[in-house]
Design a binder for these strands. Structure first.
Length: 266
DNA sequence: GCCCAGGTATAAA
DNA sequence: TTTATACATGGG
């Protein structure tokens, strides 16, 4: 069994990171977390500042995927200094990292996420993977753009996608035929990248930011006045000062973690 | 049954 | 440019 054992620091919170709502394929069992990532079934846990990942022997991939070489403690401190109100949410999210997910998976996942709840998002994505993804040992890979471009809106509707079905088709076709080059978006000027995403049917400002942040590694992309304000006002009330940090995207993830933890319905 | 979920397209003001 | 409404679906 291939395995990676790599230092991750004591503060890295694997569970918070993979269950935070920035990705939808990880699950927890007995303190270990599993998901199919980039076509491989990964099982991960942390112990004494070390991250263990079974299912791959590619340490560079693991460090990049979990963003282990970024100083999140320093970012935390910077964010709290900029907006002390976030200290409350920071307590729920200390140690959380922003994953480097596959762009196409993030694109489709966050289109599905709109006006939807996390359990149902996970279910839809799971069914799409089972039907259109390559079968691998332990499950199914996330489908390629080619595979999804071969499906019709009716096919996606049958999997419970609802009114988002044609949106998924449009996104898959754009990627497959090259009108939307996700790799290019990683380095393109941020406003051009955002504009390109907004051309996709069903992608508005919020989904665009999620794709930039979670699928394209664009942590600088976050225009706080678009919807951090919304998240902050939901938690702390109106007239909340805005952040201006280039790491506002990470702050945003903290806020979501706070909301998820405190407003989870039982 | 009713409400809502990490919004967006569309029409109207 | 800003504001209202419909949208598919299923968990709580």
């Amino acid at each position: 069994m291939s395995q990676v054992k790599t230092p991750c620091g004591e503060s890295f919170a694997l569970g918070k990171t993979v269950i935070s709502g920035q990705c939808f394929r990880w699950s927890e069992e007995n303190g270990r977390y599993s998901a199919i990532v980039s076509g491989k079934l990964l099982t991960a846990y942390t112990s004494n500042g070390t991250l263990y990942v079974y299912g791959t022997d590619d340490e560079d991939f693991v460090r990049d995927y979990f963003d282990l070489d970024r100083d999140y403690d320093a970012i935390n401190d910077e964010i709290i200094a900029l907006e002390p109100k976030l200290k409350e949410s920071e307590a729920y999210a200390r140690g959380m990292h922003i994953l480097h997910q596959e762009p196409f998976e993030a694109l489709i996942s966050f289109i599905i996420s709109q006006n939807n709840n996390i359990p149902r998002i996970r279910g839809i994505i799971s069914r799409i993977c089972e039907k259109y993804g390559e079968a691998i040992d332990g499950g199914s890979a996330f489908p390629t753009a080619k595979a999804l471009a071969s499906a019709s809106p009716e096919d996606f509707a049958a999997l419970g996608c609802g009114y988002r079905a044609p949106y998924i088709c449009d996104a898959a076709h754009r990627v497959y035929d090259g009108r939307l080059d996700l790799e290019e978006l990683k380095t393109m000027p941020i406003n051009d990248a955002r504009k390109a995403l907004l051309e996709v049917l069903g992608i508005g400002p919020k989904v665009a930011e999620c794709v930039l942040l979670y699928g394209l590694g664009r942590l600088e992309a976050f225009p706080v006045d678009v919807w951090i304000k919304r998240a902050l006002s939901e938690v702390f009330g109106k007239d909340t000062p805005l952040l201006s940090s280039p790491y506002a995207g990470i702050a945003q993830q903290y806020i979501f973690e706070f909301i998820r933890t405190n407003y989870e319905r039982h």
